[in-house]
Design a protein around this nucleic acid. Structure first.
Length: 938
RNA sequence: GGGCACUUAGCUCAGCGGUAGAGCACCGCUUUCACACGGCGGGGGUCGCAGGUUCAAACCCUGCAGUGCCCACCA
């Protein structure tokens, strides 16, 4: 459910749960003592999101930082997929809005003038359905058509609409409150609603213009009729469902013969009352002889023709098919070809009407089915009943089988509007990401059918059409205009009756990209922010919304509504099942926010947002990313406890970093920042999150902060000062990079670290995005530190594998070291000793008895483990290691021995293999030496 | 019936032509002064199956099997 109004979106969080959590939340934020604690005291070890999130959101919003037009930068615009005004936040919203917020926050920090346009949708059927249900519980019905029956009180149209508005005012704020909880930095000052005054005006103008251009017209044909809501629905609102039914074989007596029958097979015997023909295939030998004759319709006695039509499939059923043009789309076409009458045998709620024989009148279509089958059987006309599984179209909202129903409705000529919309994507003016959706879009657009836009409902935009006494239609912006036209037409004033129907909800959302910017007025905002940059939405509404926005926008704005459409996946449960209330597997984003914090939920959804693949969400993942927030929190504590600050005059350009560890972390952060930006540019949100996770935890915390410990505890004042500055700097820049994904914790730490008071930076959300390309990369530092990481890791592995007690501090030495390695051992002695828990580290030429030799790149380490380790275990370790390297060498040798490889492979690849072979062989040979030494000591 | 995805470690998934990766789970060790929501180390995979292309395939092509989704006229 990527969008609120998607067909399967009725799985939302409950109102009460979120309501409770919000009050609990604001309460705790007020009472927390932490807020009052002096900022220089060591903060709590654990990050507690609930205590700070509300505070930050209020601050952001009050500061005006969300507003568009704050600066004169290049505009960057996203329109929110408007959620149902009375809905509440579900996981699809959480994903959808997190991704949009990341893009917006990132571009805002990059200096773009960002507009994230918020708003809500009136959600016609869905909302009317909810309110009708509420009313029904009070014994109140609506004074329209057949719904009236049996209700104590009936509301007029005006009363009902007023009631919906009242409900909208009461519960319309839920979803916007919840978007705040998530951290969405939308421009609330521009919030719109699809039924507010401006947008309603846009809807009217679009309808009138399209009508005048001949692109909206009225037509009488079969529609998908929803007998529960008594309204037409569009093809898209029809949901095929597999149903176990029967195939009934029925004998229709041949007219003029006492013992001949034509046998038809049907899944819907009740519609036979509306049959006006039987069709057989022209080549079907079984029935050919009856073509041109008539059958007597059982139970009715009507004479109906037997016609030849290729629609009839000899393979299916009996090969003879009953034709009911009034209640079947195919039969309608057959009827048209053979000039058959389309009999309407149903009332709007699918009860049999007065065109059928007396005994069946008033029966519901399912009762009628039973009754008719029974009557046929009694008359000996039922040949057999076969169980039959088939697909039956259902209303996606009502859940009842839809009825093909002959009515007059308003249609949009979608085929015409689709032409420029197809062309725009063909030309790449709008691009789908992932690209695979382009195909889906084309397929649908190229086979598009007329869009039925009228709905027999009360909640929505009433169609601006008025009828004169002779049913002549006047389409106009308002009643006065319609009267004027009518007067001109009739030459006098006449009574006009307004069309009672409203428009499909998606009609107004199709205009969203420009109507929210003020269209049809030529506002400065429309000029500045249209077309929008990106639309972020779920694949389930490509047809409902994306395609229709393309059509309407291109028609009225002569330009695409958005340059990129990023299509994200569905959020499923941990087992990959669609979340649904009936399955009870719905995860409530608000509950997860309460439990782990909005940042943790946001990071989780981002890290799982692989393009083109559904998200399987398990609570454990959220917990894991909550832990990540805590890790960051503690890294900041470390910086604070070690008095790390960025000096006012600190600049990477002017300062020569004397400590390689500092040069290294700058280079690592540089790579991470660049990789992050690259990932985001390609909408690879998962990669963007992964890069930062790996940097912060795997590089900055696991290694860099550990490297700083010996320096900060040492005596070299200059080294200490530089390291403090770089630590604070790296933390500061990391907070900027993380902010789009985790706005709350980064903002809190930003303040706690005093980056805000630094004066130059101000609020983190408005801080300048780092220009990582300008930071120095230091390949020499990278090579050195990578070597240190390798050496330390190897010592740790050896200690662990040979069960050296954790507390044991070893006096290590090194031999066979290259000049570079010797230099590094000396310069990094402190760091290696601290991280590998060594007592000392010195050069040595000899190896003491029982010492273990550890082969590292460019050197051999000697560790005095006599008496600590088991020689047999050590031998096994060496042998295992040697065997692995031998395997590696053999593999590379095989490749290098292949003349084709040398001749055809990229020379760089060949060289890489040669180098690797040399390295592996050197290591292997030193291991063999070490093993020999061990054997010699036995 | 047509189309689109997916199938890689116990689980969830990255990788999409040049030494098989992550997170979680699991197993050791570890409660030393950023963090036990932690630290250190480890085990674990013939990358669905069968062919083909290539010096080289988890990655490209073909076929098959399984799973999911979308579209399609309810005999």
């Amino acid at each position: 459910m990527s969008d609120p109004r998607s067909p399967g979106a009725r799985t939302a969080a409950s109102h009460s749960a979120s309501g409770q959590s919000e009050s609990a939340h604001s309460g705790s934020a007020q009472s927390e003592s932490m807020q009052a604690a002096p900022s220089d005291a060591a903060p709590d070890k654990t990050y507690r999101p609930a205590e700070i999130e509300a505070k930050h959101y209020a601050r952001w919003e009050q500061s005006g930082a969300f507003r568009a037009g704050r600066n004169s930068g290049q505009p960057y615009t996203i329109v929110i997929p408007p959620p149902n005004v009375t809905g509440s936040l579900h996981m699809g919203h959480a994903l959808n809005n997190t991704l949009q917020d990341i893009l917006i926050r990132y571009h805002r920090m990059k200096g773009r003038d960002t507009l994230w346009q918020p708003g809500t949708d009136h959600a016609g059927i869905a909302t009317q359905m909810v309110v009708e249900r509420q009313l029904a519980a009070e014994g109140i019905g609506l004074a329209r058509g057949e719904t009236a029956g049996g209700k104590a009180k009936l509301l007029s149209r005006d009363e009902f609409v007023a009631r919906v508005w009242k409900w909208k005012e009461e519960s319309g704020g839920t979803i916007t409150r919840q978007l705040r909880r998530l951290g969405a930095s939308v421009d609330w000052s521009r919030e719109r609603f699809t039924m507010d005054e401006g947008l309603s005006a846009a809807v009217l103008k679009v309808f009138v213009d399209l009508y005048r251009q001949g692109l909206i017209y009225k037509d009488k044909r079969l529609v998908n009729w929803d007998p529960k809501f008594h309204t037409a629905i569009s093809d898209l609102e029809v949901e095929p469902r597999e149903v176990k039914g029967n195939l009934w074989h029925i004998k229709y007596p041949i007219d003029g013969s006492s013992d001949e029958f034509i046998v038809v097979a049907t899944t819907r015997p009740e519609t036979m009352l509306g049959d006006t023909a039987v069709a057989v295939h022209p080549d079907d030998e079984r029935w050919k002889r009856y073509v041109g004759k008539s059958a007597i319709l059982p139970l009715v006695g009507r004479k109906i023709p037997i016609v030849a039509d290729e629609y009839s499939d000899p393979e299916k059923g009996t090969g003879a098919v009953k034709i009911t043009p009034g209640h079947d789309f195919n039969d309608f076409e057959v009827g048209r070809r053979h000039n058959l009458e389309a009999l309407n045998i149903f009332t709007p709620n699918a009860h049999l009407n007065d065109t059928v024989p007396e005994p069946y009148r008033g029966l519901d279509r399912f009762e009628a089915r039973k009754r008719i089958v029974a009557d046929l059987e009694a008359q000996g006309l039922l040949v057999k009943t076969e169980p039959h599984v088939h697909i039956v179209p259902h209303g996606d909202r009502s859940g009842v089988p839809i009825e093909p129903y002959l009515t007059e409705q308003w249609y949009v000529n979608a085929r015409k509007l689709a032409e420029p919309a197809i062309e725009a994507v063909e030309q790449g003016r709008t691009v789908f990401v992932p690209e695979q959706w382009t195909k889906t879009y084309f397929h649908w657009m190229r086979n598009i059918e007329p869009w039925c836009v009228s709905r027999q409902l009360w909640w929505g935009h009433q169609i601006p059409a008025w009828y004169g006494p002779d049913r002549k239609v006047f389409v106009a912006m308002n009643e006065a205009e319609a009267r004027k036209e009518a007067r001109e037409h009739y030459g006098k004033d006449v009574e006009l009756a307004r069309d009672a129907d409203v428009l499909d909800t998606w009609f107004s959302s199709a205009l969203w990209a420009f109507s929210t910017l003020g269209w049809p007025e030529q506002t400065p905002e429309l000029k500045r922010y249209y077309p929008t940059d990106v639309l972020v939405t779920g694949f389930d509404i490509i047809f409902f919304w994306v395609a229709r926005m393309m059509m309407m926008s291109l028609h009225f704005m002569k330009d695409v509504p958005f340059r990129t459409v990023y299509i994200h996946a569905l959020v499923r449960d941990a087992k990959g099942q669609k979340m649904s209330k009936s399955k009870g597997n719905v995860m409530d984003p608000l509950e997860l926010i309460d439990k782990f914090g909005a940042d943790a939920l946001r990071f989780t959804l981002t890290a799982l947002a692989v393009p083109g693949r559904d998200i399987k969400l398990a609570e454990g993942r959220v917990e894991g990313y909550r832990n990540f927030a805590t890790k960051l929190w503690n890294a900041a504590r470390y910086a604070q406890m070690n008095a790390c600050v960025v000096p006012a005059d600190f600049s990477l350009r002017d300062v020569e970093l004397t400590q390689k560890v500092n040069g290294w972390i700058v280079g690592e952060l540089r790579s991470a920042a660049l990789a992050f930006e690259e990932a985001l540019a390609a909408f690879r949100f998962n990669d963007a999150a992964g890069v930062l996770y790996q940097f912060v935890w795997g590089t900055f915390c696991d290694w860099y902060l550990e490297f700083t410990k010996p320096i900060l505890q040492g005596t070299d004042a200059a080294a200490k000062a530089e390291t403090r500055a770089v630590t604070a700097w790296a933390l500061r820049e990391s907070l900027k990079l993380l902010h789009p994904i985790m706005p709350f914790v980064t903002s809190e730490l930003w303040e706690r670290q005093g980056f805000e008071e630094g004066g130059r930076e101000g609020m983190l959300m408005l801080a300048e995005w780092p220009d990582a390309k300008a930071w120095p990369a230091d390949p020499a530092a990278a090579a050195e530190l990578n070597w240190i990481v390798e050496v330390v890791s190897q010592i740790r592995t050896l200690r662990s594998e040979t069960n050296v007690p954790h507390a044991a501090r070893l006096a290590a030495s090194y031999k066979d070291a290259s000049p570079a390695a010797r230099d590094r051992f000396q310069r990094y002695a402190d760091i290696i000793r601290t991280l590998a828990r060594l007592d000392s580290l010195a050069p040595a030429d000899t190896v003491a008895k029982g010492a273990v030799q550890l082969v590292v790149p460019e050197a051999t380490l000697v560790l005095p483990l006599a008496g600590i380790i088991d020689p047999a275990a050590e031998r096994a370790r060496l042998q295992k290691e040697i065997k692995k390297l031998e395997g590696d060498v053999a593999g590379i040798d095989r490749r290098l021995a292949n003349p084709d490889f040398i001749a055809k492979a990229d020379p760089e690849v060949v060289e890489e293999n040669r180098e690797r072979r040399a390295d592996v062989e050197a290591a292997r040979s030193r291991l063999v030496t070490a093993l020999g030494r061990l054997e010699a000591l036995r």
